[in-house]
Amino acid sequence: MATASPCGPISTYSRVQILHLMQTRSPRTIGEICDATGLHANTVREHLQRLIEGGYVISATEHRTTRGRPRALYSAVTGAPGASSPVARDKVSAAARRGDILRRMLPATASDLDSDATHQLDALIEHLEESGFEPVIDDAQLTVDLTPCPHAAARPEDRPVLCRVHLGLMQGVLTEAGGPLAAEFVREPAAPEECTVQLRVTAVA
């Protein structure tokens, strides 16, 4: 079977780099992103706009206590309070509605997970499909099989960043959806095209 090509707002490695910077520390200014990536400011602005439209990044205006023009500050969407995106919230709600409709039409697709966890998986599946993956969920083992990984052909030195960014995005989707599931780690693959993410159940306050 042919390996799918990465798609969606994070289809370029430059956007992955930008997301990695913001997942490491937020907020970031355009100048900081330019310095870290070597990209031109106009290119960074274009990437940030796509990431905002995709629900992966939010922007805010700097609060200054001194004279000068406030800068735009950019942060990764994590689903936590203060780091949520209207786009991401809409995606989560729409995924839950579509999932509920599917389960009413095909009761056999329902799982033993509670409704919050089920809606988390609805949102996660749609996020991964948008990103070019073909996720297979094991409700019992709490695993997400993404084999064949669209990034298998990436340079070996780029794979760690790609994996960390995608794991962070998955965790952000699960947090945004709200529920007991969290993305824990990417299992060590036996072959480059293999990718399995381990989920876990967390205590919900």
Rank of each mutant, 00 (worst) to 15 (best):
Y56V: 10
A123K: 06
Q171A: 15
P189E: 13
R71Y: 07
M105P: 00
V165F: 02
S111Y: 07
G79C: 02
R71M: 11
P107F: 09
A83S: 06
V16N: 03
V161Y: 01
R69W: 02
M170D: 09
S131W: 01
K91N: 14
R64D: 01
D158M: 12
E46W: 00
P6N: 07
E134C: 09
S14R: 02
D90Y: 03
D138T: 11
P180F: 13
D139V: 12
E188W: 05
D90V: 08
S131Y: 04
G168I: 13
Q171Y: 02
T147P: 00
L167G: 10
V204Q: 10
A96P: 01
S111T: 15
D112G: 09
E62T: 11
S93N: 13
D122A: 14
A72W: 05
E188H: 10
R15W: 01
E184T: 12
P27S: 13
A2E: 12
P148I: 13
G179W: 11
N42L: 11
L106N: 10
M170S: 13
S5H: 05
D35V: 10
I10N: 09
R67K: 11
L48M: 05
D90N: 13
A41L: 00
P9L: 14
L181E: 13
G79P: 02
P180K: 12
L102G: 00
L181K: 07
S131T: 14
A110N: 11
A36G: 09
P135T: 05
T29M: 00
A123L: 06
E130C: 04
M1H: 12
L51T: 11
E46M: 01
G172T: 15
R25K: 09
S111E: 10
I52C: 04
Q141T: 14
K91Y: 10
A96W: 02
T109V: 15
V87Q: 05
H119A: 12
T65A: 04
R67S: 15
R69P: 01
R50Y: 03
T175Q: 04
G38V: 03
S115Q: 15
V201H: 07
L121C: 08
A183F: 08
P160Y: 05
E157N: 03
L21A: 12
D35W: 00
G79D: 04
H127M: 11
T66N: 10
E134T: 15
R97H: 10
G8W: 03
P70M: 06
A203Q: 09
R200Y: 04
A117Q: 02
D116P: 01
A177E: 10
S59E: 15
P135M: 03
V87K: 07
D122Y: 08
H166T: 12
D100P: 00
G99E: 07
Y56F: 14
G168L: 12
T61G: 03
E32F: 00
G38P: 08
